[in-house]
């Protein structure tokens, strides 16, 4: 088979996975929320636990009217969901699902991920600016401050792992853990920083200031509806998956398992969804922080902690 056919097949698989995963997570979030909030959650569509709600949701999103505000900056507004969505899909290129199940095993995988992930901010900002809505603008401004501030500890936290494993390739990191055990044993501090920064990066409670329903109605996607809104949602949930997968890769041994190829992929997915569950759980349990508290946490605690972790790891490696 020529290489480009393989590439197209891979892209199709990734897109299909993004769609299914997004729908599944939306359903899962509603279900978990229902469980936490002492109610049932979706239960009407489909037999086991309203499972087909996810298709109902998707169909609803596709068939809804796509309203554009009259005063919006047309092209910026139009492209924002695409710009927000694309880097998230691009991140799948280097996620190692199994021993050979990876889009492309780059030797700069982590740098690629960091570069691609910071691109999402552009989409958020375009949406906030293009909507010509003050809530959206405020949300976008907050997003700018928040995502840039938290990207720094997020990336610094991974440096500890890179120092131990001595590679930037995601496959390489997993292979190191297959040999030496999970990184969480030595990099617990890094994981804590990573996880908190990850929540902020994903705009999830307690750091969902960018969306903040009760203050900014819905932040940067206030003015979106129909499938455009759906794209933001899909991108967001896919992003949750990507970040969780990254956390699993970096700290929890990735696909490392004794059960062969299928077992590896399954183990990887189980671990990832466990972290996703943790994120959902946190979302429905805690209130939201304020912008100044967010900044204080990011710059005064997470950044020094991540730097300390690097120094500490370096010292350990030296000895």
């Amino acid at each position: 088979m020529p290489e480009w056919v393989m590439a197209i097949i891979k892209i199709l698989i990734v897109l299909a996975f993004i769609g299914l995963n997004g729908m599944f997570l939306i359903w899962a979030e509603r279900k978990v929320a229902g469980f936490i909030q002492a109610r049932i959650g979706p239960a009407r569509v489909g037999r086991p636990q309203g499972f087909f709600q996810l298709f109902a949701d998707a169909i609803k999103m596709f068939s809804k009217e796509d309203v554009r505000p009259a005063a919006a900056d047309k092209w910026v507004w139009w492209f924002a969901p695409v710009v927000f969505f694309t880097p998230v899909a691009m991140a799948f290129l280097v996620l190692p699902f199994g021993p050979n199940v990876i889009g492309l095993d780059m030797n700069i995988g982590l740098i690629y991920l960091a570069a691609v992930a910071s691109f999402a901010l552009l989409g958020v900002f375009m949406a906030g600016w293009g909507s010509n809505n003050k809530y959206s603008l405020l949300g976008a401004m907050r997003a700018g401050a928040q995502m840039i501030s938290y990207e720094i500890p997020l990336i610094l936290a991974t440096i500890g792992v890179i120092m131990i494993t001595g590679t930037l390739s995601t496959q390489g990191i997993v292979e190191y853990q297959v040999a030496h055990g999970w990184n969480i044993k030595t990099q617990f501090l890094a994981f804590v920083v990573f996880f908190i920064a990850m929540l902020a990066e994903l705009n999830r409670t307690p750091f969902d200031l960018v969306i903040a329903e009760s203050e900014l109605t819905s932040g940067f996607f206030t003015e979106y509806s129909g499938i455009r809104w759906g794209m933001f949602m899909f991108a967001e949930y896919t992003n949750i998956f990507v970040m969780s997968a990254l956390a699993v890769t970096l700290f929890f041994g990735g696909w490392a398992s004794p059960f062969g190829l299928v077992g590896s992929v399954l183990i990887f997915l189980i671990k990832t969804y466990a972290i996703v569950f943790l994120i959902i759980w946190i979302r429905w349990s805690v209130p939201r922080v304020r912008i100044d508290q967010l900044m204080t946490l990011g710059w005064k605690f997470l950044l020094p902690l991540s730097l300390f972790n690097i120094v500490f790891t370096g010292l350990i490696l030296l000895i």
């Binding site: 409670t205 307690p206 969902d208 903040a212 009760s214």
Partner: peptide, 16 residues
């Protein structure tokens, strides 16, 4: 008040 603060769950417990 909890919901204004962004915590949705206590709202439903209050309503229960």
């Amino acid at each position: 008040f909890a919901m204004d603060m962004g915590a949705f769950t206590p709202f439903l417990y209050g309503f229960r």
